[in-house]
Design a protein around this nucleic acid. Structure first.
Lengths: 286, 286
DNA sequence: ATAAATTCTGTAATTTTATTACAAAAATGA
DNA sequence: TCATTTTTGTAATAAAATTACAGAATTTAT
């Protein structure tokens, strides 16, 4: 799932460095030492730095499988971009707005990309199937996951199936106890360690409901879950670092909703268009 | 307009496309349509495809802040490598789970990165200052922005300042009318065209509150707003494509909260530690 | 509406950059 | 050692990008 469509040029160069000829190796060494600089150099400039002739640089590029020097620079640039773009730092007390806003944006964006790599598509498929065939769907969340549950309802209510969210532990227990076969309950809990949520999952399963969880793979909650959609976001305990898990959960729920919509087929999609239209009256037109 | 550097060429191009001259725009359209192809084209080839002269392509590159065509290609290549080029990929009815889940993950991640490029830090700073000095903070949202408002409360209640959210239009009107100087009201509305929200903003401002909006720059809501935190997410009308604006709003609110926490200083940070500790009793230990 | 000013855009010349052809220099192997 | 292969650099060539400038299109002011 990771987009390694083209093998990393830097990695390739590191591999093949020792099988290069003497002069080409000189070029390789320079490239590995200062890849960021090399992408801005002309073939003449690089040749001079490496103390070789220009055609040697050109041959060096071909040896690495590039069509020529411009192609080499391009691949090198991409290789660097993918490598450095994924360093997300933690917000420090002394950070200026410019810095910490950039860090938070980056961390958020990367949490989602990371989830894309980790998600188990089989489980997603099972979850979509279960929701598609369910009589009703409930979303349970506490604390930061409460708004996520609400957002899920806002998305899923369009599907025709009755949906609701429970963000109160007593309501959750009662609803879980009265659930029955054909009901799907989705538990949202990043840690998967919140006692009342875990107990609820147990109750729901005993009552016959299908339990889906957005949680950590090895958590107590996962034990009482039929379909775990595991996310391994680092629960950062730093007070400055925001919970990126919410964003991941929202995105996973987006995908589930999309999957169910596609399964429901044309009729429901017409209904969605109606819902959209119903909103136009509430807005200023252009 | 944007005081922070735009690291992402594709995002920048999408932003500035409409302010380009006729011929340069032709080039921009081709680049956005087929960015992967463009990185392999010579200036002459691209000029021919776009049906313009070579110098026009060169000027196009400079307009975007590049030093010339080679620099443009390099930046484009890096932009693509980080995944940004796939912003416009829309979920199609025939997509398999693998495909559309990847598209949704990508689109979500990119939306946040794009916002990072577009956000106006001066306005963020003003918003943080206003919230820091406020007597109370209210978050207003309807529909999909309701859960966002709830999430904001969950984050901001830790700061000591009284916070609440309003997701009911009548409550919103009443609360807005009784607001006073020193109160901050944050309106969350991607379109900025929801009539009742716009009216509320007007009421709130007349009542003397400081109005902050997470909305589109040129929207009616922006007119009645003191501090606009504009986000230009494409409101995709496709039924399959999820609202990425929520994710962006949540992230911006994360940054605001972090900014206020940092302003509040040490005492509040101790309190945050207490809040964190208070949760430990609710969880299974490791 | 018309003329002036400004902004765009393309042609052609120039400069920069990359590639090729080929010969000299190493290196290899008997 | 000498023939053969591989490696490397010089010089010529080709390709690509940039500049200067002038004509076109657009805007602005009268």
């Amino acid at each position: 799932m990771h987009n390694n469509k083209q093998s990393n040029l830097v990695a390739k160069l590191e591999n093949e460095l020792n099988s290069l000829s003497k002069s080409e190796k000189k070029v390789g060494v320079i490239v590995l030492e200062t890849p960021e600089d090399c992408i801005r150099l002309s073939i003449a400039a690089l040749a001079k730095i490496a103390d070789v002739s220009e055609p040697t640089v050109n041959r060096f590029c071909r040896t690495l499988g590039c069509t020529g020097y411009p192609d080499f620079k391009l691949q090198l640039a991409q290789s660097i971009a993918t490598g450095t773009a994924f360093i997300s730092e933690i917000v420090k007390p002394e950070d200026e707005l410019v810095t910490f806003s950039q860090k938070i944006f980056n961390a958020s964006s990367q949490a989602i990309l990371k989830a894309a790599d980790q998600i188990d598509l089989n489980c997603m498929d099972q979850a979509i199937e279960a929701m598609h065939n369910s009589n009703r769907i409930d979303f349970y969340g506490l604390g930061g996951s409460g708004p996520v549950a609400k957002d899920a309802v806002h998305k899923f209510f369009r599907l025709g199936t009755p949906v609701s969210e429970q963000t109160d532990i007593l309501m959750q227990r009662m609803a879980a106890a009265t659930a029955s076969k054909g009901d799907v309950i989705v538990f949202i809990s990043n840690t998967g360690r919140t006692i009342s949520i875990v107990e609820c999952a147990q109750i729901a399963r005993e009552a016959g409901a299908t339990v889906i969880s957005l949680t950590h793979k090895d958590s107590p909650l996962a034990k009482y879950t039929d379909i775990v959609l595991h996310t391994h976001t680092n629960e950062n305990t730093d007070i400055f670092t925001p919970m990126t898990s919410r964003l991941v959960h929202l995105t996973i729920l987006d995908i589930l909703a999309t999957g169910v919509i596609k399964k429901k087929g044309k009729e429901i999609q017409k209904q969605l268009a109606k819902i959209k239209e119903s909103l136009s009256q509430t807005r200023y037109s252009f």
